[in-house]
């Protein structure tokens, strides 16, 4: 879908929220939902940061680490990709305290979502690094670069461009997964919606607004990643022409 269509969808979604906000039946819920949305955004941003860090670390460990580190990274990726995000969230929330590690819901949420998406992300990073042409490595060797120099100066900058679209999808997945944290008592957007629904039974306005708000957040993220992709690959094209 083109970036123009996405921007048009975003504009329409915002306009619909604006029109609904003039109706009392809807505007009543808006402040509370916005409060929830702020928490959703916080968790999404921190979770994404953790996911990127874990993704890069796990991918580098699997590709270039010594054997024990490689196994550790593989086990991490398999466990977090193989079990459901909600199971991981509940495990960290309910089971970890039994081992003496009691965390607040907020760090649990960031940790669970970050680790979960990081596991998928490591495959993205790994694939992107492997997709860099062999000749680039050989060129680096010919220039007598150290392995760290090769990765930092030549391989990762090229792999970065290939990573942007799949990471964009993963960030969207993470944003949507933040709704799960409502089930461990964090008052994010989904939690606020359920709470208000139980108090007022005004189901239709509440859930319509919530869907629209998630849509706006996803679209902003998608558009942002598209722009980033455009910028990054524009640089690459120039480099090729030179």
């Amino acid at each position: 879908m083109g970036i123009g269509t996405l921007v048009a969808m975003l504009a329409i979604a915002l306009a619909v929220i604006g029109i609904l906000a003039t109706q009392q039946a809807y505007s009543l819920f808006l402040p509370g939902l916005l409060q929830g949305a702020v928490l959703t955004i916080e968790i999404a941003i921190l979770g994404s940061l953790l996911a990127v860090i874990m993704g890069v670390l796990a991918a580098l460990a699997r590709l270039y680490g010594p054997a024990p580190l490689r196994w550790l990274a593989t086990v991490y990726v398999e466990i977090f990709r193989g079990t459901s995000a909600l199971v991981q969230l509940f495990w960290l929330f309910f089971v970890l305290p039994q081992f003496g590690v009691s965390l607040d819901p907020f760090p649990v949420a960031v940790l669970a979502l970050g680790l979960n998406v990081g596991a998928y992300g490591s495959e993205v990073v790994r694939g992107a690094i492997l997709s860099v042409a062999r000749g680039q490595w050989e060129g680096c060797t010919a220039l007598n670069m150290s392995r760290a120099q090769m990765l930092r100066r030549v391989i990762l900058p090229q792999a970065f461009v290939a990573m942007i679209p799949p990471w964009g999808n993963l960030f969207i997945e993470l944003l949507k997964s933040t709704s799960l944290v409502s089930l461990i008592t964090l008052s994010d957007l989904a939690f606020k919606a359920q709470q208000m629904n139980q108090n007022t039974f005004k189901t239709l306005p509440i859930f319509t607004l919530v869907l629209l708000m998630y849509l706006v957040m996803s679209l902003v993220l998608t558009i942002g990643m598209r722009l980033l992709e455009r910028r990054a690959s524009a640089g690459l094209a120039r480099g090729k022409a030179a």
Partner: peptide, 19 residues
């Protein structure tokens, strides 16, 4: 498709179940 993919499944479940 974009609308369905851009919103969380959990909210969609709630929407169908409650709305």
């Amino acid at each position: 498709v974009e609308l369905i993919r851009s919103t969380p499944l959990l909210i969609q479940i709630f929407f169908i179940y409650f709305v």
